[in-house]
Each structure stands twice: as C-alpha cells, then as structure tokens.
Simulated assay, not measured.
Amino acid sequence: MLDEVAVKRYVVPLREGGSLPGLVEAEDLASYVMKFTGAGQGRKTLVAEVVCGRLARALGFRVPELVALDLDPVIGLGEPDPEVQGLIKASGGTNLGMRYLSGALGFDPLAYGVDPLEAGRVVWFDALINNVDRSWRNPNMLVWHGDLWLIDHGASMIWHHNWRGAPAWADKPYDASDHALARYAPDIAAAAAELAPRVTEAMLAEAVADVPDVWLTDEPGFDSPDAVRRAYVETLHARVATIHERIALPEGGADQARPSAPGWLTPGAGR
C-alpha cells in the first residue's frame, strides 16, 4: 500500500487544468503536489494515478513518489479563495500526493532530445494505459537533474468510467498522432519486445494493490475493492500482447510547436 502521511500545511493552489491540485507540506517534512478526492474528476483520477504510476515505476520509468495524504479540512480555514476552501472541505481523509520535484522544468522538445528507444518506450506505455493526455500541447513530462520524468496519469484508463464496456478496450487502437514524443521516431517494436513480456498479471496485481480501499469501495457492479482490482488487472493484461500493432503515429513527424509547462512550474508557484 501507499505510505500514509498527514498534511501539515497547505501552501498554494496549482491552477493546472480543472482539478486544482495544491502544493502542501506533510509531516515527513516533504512537499507534495496533492490531488483531491473532492475535485470534479472524482476518485477515479486518483486511482488512475496510482495504478499507472506504480506500473510505470515497475517498468523503469521515472515517476514522482506517490503517497496517501491524510487531510484534515481544518487546514483550509485560512485559505482566502472560496473555491479552494470548498475543495479542501470536501476532501477530508485520504488524498493523493506526488513528491514535488523542486527545480524541475517542463519538457520542451526544442531544448531536450529523446532518443527513439526511449520515445518508443513512453509511447508504448501510454498506449497500454490509453493515456490521452501527453500531447505536444500538454506533454505532462518534466526534466529534473537532466532526466525525463512522467507525471499526471489521471486521464488514463478511460474504460474504468464504464466498466461494462471495458472488455472491448483490449482491441482498440491508440492514436499517437498528437503525442509529445511522436516527432522522435519512437521505436515501438523495440519497446514492445522489451516491455510487454514484463507486464505480467502479477506485476499488474502489485500495482493495483496500492490503491486505497476507500477509493474502490461501492463501485457499481462490484462487490468488493478486490473485485475492482481484478478488473483493472484483466483489462490491462488483455491489451499487453498486441497493443503495439495498433499504435497510430503521424506520417512525417508530429507538430513542432512548443508544449506548455505544468502550472506549478510558473514563477511564484512555490511561494
């Protein structure tokens, strides 16, 4: 399971997308980007972050450390923004924290090169989890100490919003024409040969085991959190063997425009 730490201080809202994450300090003296259970996207965003983040780490990708953050809503009483105060009030209990990478820079294809093997690994992984949120417009990647880090997987595994249709997702293609790394001639075949054999049911079971029960309880159509976990394992494992055959890359490379940096990297975000 995820390590559990209590939130000590709410620092600042990070106005990135619609979820309104916040930068917090915890009792372990570390800083985290916290995603709230009370946000509009709901708890499934947090489930996706944990499952995909744990799976990414098991496959050797760099992903910020994940923890379960225990939030006492009283911490938000001094927050002047009523939207933020309402979000904190609605999110008492277990939330998700991602270790804050101080000094990290948003991935910029004009300043940072990625070799075809690494690009292929990332594209293949995103195809497996059906990540629709790593485009050149919003790469959701950071460069920290010279290395590439993957962040923000909350929009992945779209099938878990409609479990009855989940089995059909095993055969669906993945459109990588807008992917942030499409311009680097990703070697999908090499990535599949390396990574697919490693994504076993046991590896997937370990990844989903880290999701707190409270985020899986009362899921329609399931009688227990463990039953939901099995559904994640079965759906992901069904995609592994042949997903590389259904990745659609653009002809002639992707658009060359610069991506935008995550909101928490903008000047003043850490104050």
Rank of each mutant, 00 (worst) to 15 (best):
E234A: 15
A209Q: 14
P220L: 11
D210P: 04
P116W: 05
M34G: 02
E83W: 15
L236S: 06
K89Q: 13
A176F: 14
V12T: 12
W144M: 02
A155E: 02
P64W: 10
A254N: 08
A90Q: 08
P225W: 03
G268Y: 08
L55H: 05
G38I: 03
V67S: 13
T37N: 09
V199H: 07
D70C: 02
G165H: 10
G53N: 12
K172F: 15
R9G: 01
P250L: 05
L101H: 07
A205W: 11
L2A: 02
G106M: 00
L71P: 11
P139F: 04
D187P: 04
T37L: 03
Y100Q: 05
I188A: 06
E25R: 15
P262K: 09
E27W: 10
L128M: 05
D108N: 15
P80Q: 03
L77N: 11
L87S: 05
E79T: 13
V11T: 12
A269Q: 10
P139I: 00
V228M: 06
G154S: 10
M203R: 13
Q256T: 14
V47R: 05
A90G: 05
W159C: 01
D72A: 14
K89P: 00
R9S: 06
V208H: 09
D3N: 13
T37Y: 00
R198W: 07
T266N: 06
A170P: 05
K89I: 00
A238P: 08
P73K: 04
L14K: 03
W124V: 14
E234N: 11
A193C: 07
D175P: 09
D175F: 11
P82G: 03
A202H: 11
Q85K: 14
G40V: 13
G103Y: 02
V233C: 12
V114E: 11
Y32E: 09
G18W: 12
E194I: 02
A185W: 07
A231G: 14
R57L: 10
P259S: 13
G270W: 12
D175V: 10
E16M: 03
W124P: 04
T45N: 11
H160V: 04
A227Y: 08
D133F: 08
R229W: 13
L66M: 14
V208M: 09
E25G: 07
I158T: 10
P267Q: 01
G22D: 09
A227P: 04
P21V: 00
G60C: 08
G268C: 09
A58P: 01
P220A: 02
G97N: 08
G146N: 04
Y10A: 12
G38P: 00
V5K: 07
A111W: 00
P250V: 10
F61D: 00
N162V: 12
T94F: 00
V24N: 05
Q85S: 14
S102F: 13
G106H: 05
P13T: 07
A191K: 06
S102E: 15
I158R: 13
P82K: 09
T266C: 03
Y100G: 02
A48S: 15
Y174I: 06
L128T: 10
R137N: 10
G18P: 01
G22H: 11
G97H: 09
S177V: 15
W264T: 06
D226R: 14
D133T: 06
Y10V: 14
N95S: 04
I129T: 12
G113V: 11
V74M: 09
L59K: 05
H145F: 15
Y10Q: 01
M34R: 01
P64N: 03
R15E: 03
A196D: 00
D72G: 13
T217Q: 11
N131C: 03
H179A: 12
